[in-house]
Nucleic acid binder design. Sequence first.
DNA 1: TGCTAATTAGCAATTCATGCAGATAAGGTT
DNA 2: AACCTTATCTGCATGAATTGCTAATTAGCA
Lengths: 140, 140
Amino acid sequence: MRSPEELTVAFRTAGLKVTPQRQLLFRLLHDNSSHPTADSLHSAATSVMPGISLRTVYQTLTDLAHMGELQSIEVGSGSLRFDPNVSDHHHAVCDDCGDVHDVYVTKAPVLRGLDDFSVSDAHIVYRGQCGACSALVAQK
Amino acid sequence: MRSPEELTVAFRTAGLKVTPQRQLLFRLLHDNSSHPTADSLHSAATSVMPGISLRTVYQTLTDLAHMGELQSIEVGSGSLRFDPNVSDHHHAVCDDCGDVHDVYVTKAPVLRGLDDFSVSDAHIVYRGQCGACSALVAQK
DNA sequence: TGCTAATTAGCAATTCATGCAGATAAGGTT
DNA sequence: AACCTTATCTGCATGAATTGCTAATTAGCA
């Protein structure tokens, strides 16, 4: 997603207001590769701005997603995760620690078994063990 | 997943009991490629066995999944879907009608951008428009 | 037939997300 | 700088999907 400054302009242009709550969320999301949930973002926001509502976090995330600044992904953790990286990429989820990593594929896989389906999007979720967790297991 | 008869043996062997409720669900799931939700299965079961509990449906689905007879998938429809096809395959979801189709890929895509992650599983969700829905749009 | 442990049904509880409404504040206008 | 319109915020209620809990029931073996 774009920088907080660019988003400020984009929101005003779209007739949306730029509130302190939104500016905080812009900052918390910018360059954030942790794939946070709405709840974890709310926790982070609360420590800077006590009293900010979880409802506001959801609302702003929805707005950003509609504007294409944010991608929401489902990786089986029970809640939605938000990804400010909107380039064409996929995700690898560690079964041990649950961390989500961005990954890219060299070539889109070719479909088989379905005659007549026009694909507009494909998303791959890899599961396995991340480097940090395999190191932890090895040292035990 | 295996046939109702084979599952009956497997359940008894595992120390689990084979109840009429479970036998019905075995039959409803066998060769079912509609990727039903717990709720749609409960509806189907209710028309045959009025009074069967949604809780029992969930319980049996969980048991079957733990035994590897069933795969549970998430395609962004809000609720889990269950797939008795446990071969290595992926899914294509129609954005118009929501139907889920089994698909196979000729070659697993090669990862890029992650040094140290041992992949144990990869699942691809394709989105787009199925043949039936594109035909519907064309005839309008 | 009887015993025991697994299962069922029904309801409560939980989690994640959205709907709603009154109070508030952004930001263009005067 | 004061004002006005409208979007936004907060808090709470609601909804949807799933799991926890428990008394009553039943499968399946002895």
